[in-house]
Each structure stands twice: as structure tokens, then as C-alpha cells.
Design a protein around this nucleic acid. Structure first.
Lengths: 163, 163
DNA sequence: GGCATATAACTCGTACGCGATTTAATCGTA
DNA sequence: TACGATTAAATCGCGTACGAGTTATATGCC
């Protein structure tokens, strides 16, 4: 009775379909494949598109700000943003008040390509087979799960840093 | 009334937290980070661990069989399996009846490392913050979503092949 | 048997993700 | 002001994903 807290609250069989993490992993692969036909016509990858979404929401963000929203760091974002710049979708320039920071802005072509993909999203949303209620609920549950996981890894990371 | 079917059933604002695909994408990043401390001690990556899970469930599978379970193809799996072999966790050998196929088996070390990670999973399962019921439900919903998405991309791919 | 077709795995090039390190700018404090 | 500490971005190396193409084996049909 007293060691109830010690063991994991959920018993798992050692089989793939039973892992929640594998369900998330494979659903992510599936979403990438669903988006691919829509994106590759425009020379975009899925993470690049996500960056455009974040920039459309708020323009002229620093790399760190973008990173916080996308859960990525500069080692991933810098090359990605350079590719978007090479394709004419964003502009990167040093902040004049703090030259350490780089500010990223959408170009008109960037905004237009974002809108094009956004309008084509309906097909994919429909392919989920979810009604609006399930869609929103699933999304909310995932965000909560993600934030729980990130809170867990962050605290264990701080433990390591402290050593 | 009549064109109700034409438009997507779900209206989205153009904001990141609203995309289900981004919820899945970022939750996948979070799961990877949660598993990392457990896996890197053993020199494993998350996809490598998933391959070990599949092999523990059924040993001596071909690359294609593994690929079907993991939703990956040989261009991804071959290098991954070679790394597992280099670390002594699996053995790869040509099928004597059909030399085109490569059969992959767990070594004793592979089985032992799988068990080690599996036993350490409890912490991560707990970090999800989900009770057993929500865990299982979320997982089932994701699998259904994944399979809907894959069915959608597969049919549109066949359309392309037919052209 | 011989040859076109199909199939399984592999190889290659590109783009993430990320740990580790580097470079450059700013801040804090004496 | 000077100088160590901090911070932001960039760079590097490795391991996935995956489209496209290659190689080797098996199959089907004459």
C-alpha cells in the first residue's frame, strides 16, 4: 500500500501499438506525409511552413522568440531560416539596438505562400476524419501532454546542470 | 445548406496553437527529449529503441516487415539497423531462401538493453501526467488519426502513379 | 534456357533535430 | 573604463526521414 507511489501508475505490455510515444511518433510521420504534396509544390518543408505560420502571427521576431514558439533552438532554426531567405520568403537582419539578435520578417512572397498553404489545409483537416469537437479536444490534450513532458525534462536537466 | 460538404468541416484561425499537426509535431519533440536521458546512456536513439521493441515482439523479421510496423522504408532502416549491428544489439543476415531479403534478429545484448529501457519507461509514463484511462484513450485516438491520414496520402499517391 | 519484369535492400543527396562548441555583442561590477 | 560573465546566433557532427536512383535476386512467360 505504501509503495503504491513507487511503481508507474500505468502498466504497459512490451508491444509497439501500446506505447503512447509511438502513437505520437507515427502520427507525426503521417502528418508530414499528408502535407508533403501541398508543400513541395512551393518548395517548402513542414518545419519551414510552421515557421511561416509563427511569423504570420507576429512579424519581425528574433530567432530565440521563434524558437520558443516552435520548441526549437538556433542550431536548427538558423539553417532553416537561411533556406527560407534563399527562397525569398523571409528577410533576416541584425537588430540595430542589440547586434547579437537577428530579426526575421516575412516578405510579401512569404505571406502569400503561407496563405496558399493555409487555404489548402482543409483537405488535410478533413483527412483526419475528426469532427470539430474531437479535433479541438485531441489538440488540447496533446498540448497538455507536451507541456507535462517538457516540464519533466526541463527539471531533470536543471538537476544535471547543478551537478 | 447544399455546399456544406464542400468547405472543410473545421474552421481554423491561422495561429500555431490551433493546428493539430503542430500539437503532434511538438509533442513528438517533447517525447524525444523525455526519452533522451534514458537512451543516451545506452548509446541508443529513439527510433533505434522502437526498432528493438518491434524485434522483441517478433524476432528475425525482414527489413520490409520491420518497415511496415515502424512506418519506415529501407532507405531509413538500413543505416539505422547497421548502427544497431555495429553496437552489437542486432544481427543482420541474408535469407537463404530469398537472397534479396535481409533478416534482422536481436542479440542477447539487444534484448537486455531493450529490457533496461523498458523498465525505465515508468518515469516517462508518469511524466505524461495521464491516468491509465486517458493514456489509453489518447493513444487509440492518435492511432485512428494516423491511419486516416495514411489512407488519405496513400490514395492520392496512387492517383499520381496512375498519371 | 533466356529475357523482361518485379521486388528487396542499398546508396546518395537534402533537410531537419540536437549536443557541443565557437564567435560576437552586451552586461555587471569593481 | 576595463574585464569577466552572460547572452544570441552560428557552426559542426551525427542520426534520422525520404525522394530518387542503383544493384542483385527472384519470377513469369515464351
Amino acid at each position: 500500500m505504501e509503495n503504491q507511489e513507487k511503481a508507474s501508475r500505468i502498466e504497459l505490455a512490451a508491444s509497439l501499438p501500446v506505447f503512447l510515444c509511438f502513437a505520437v511518433y507515427s502520427t507525426n510521420l503521417a502528418f508530414n506525409r499528408a502535407y508533403k504534396p501541398l508543400l513541395e509544390k512551393l518548395g517548402l518543408t513542414y518545419p519551414q511552413y510552421v515557421a511561416l505560420v509563427a511569423l504570420n502571427e507576429e512579424n519581425d521576431q528574433t530567432v530565440s522568440q521563434l524558437g520558443q514558439k516552435l520548441f526549437l533552438e538556433s542550431n536548427t532554426l538558423t539553417p532553416l531560416l537561411k533556406r527560407l531567405e534563399a527562397n525569398g520568403y523571409v528577410i533576416r537582419r541584425r537588430d540595430s539596438h542589440d547586434e547579437r539578435q537577428v530579426r526575421v520578417s516575412l516578405t510579401p512572397q512569404g505571406r502569400s505562400v503561407f496563405e496558399k498553404v493555409f487555404c489548402g489545409c482543409g483537405t488535410i483537416v478533413d483527412a483526419t476524419g475528426l469532427d470539430e469537437q474531437s479535433y479541438v479536444r485531441l489538440q488540447r490534450e496533446l498540448i497538455e501532454l507536451r507541456d507535462n513532458l517538457l516540464a519533466g525534462s526541463k527539471s531533470s536537466k536543471q538537476d544535471l546542470d547543478r551537478e
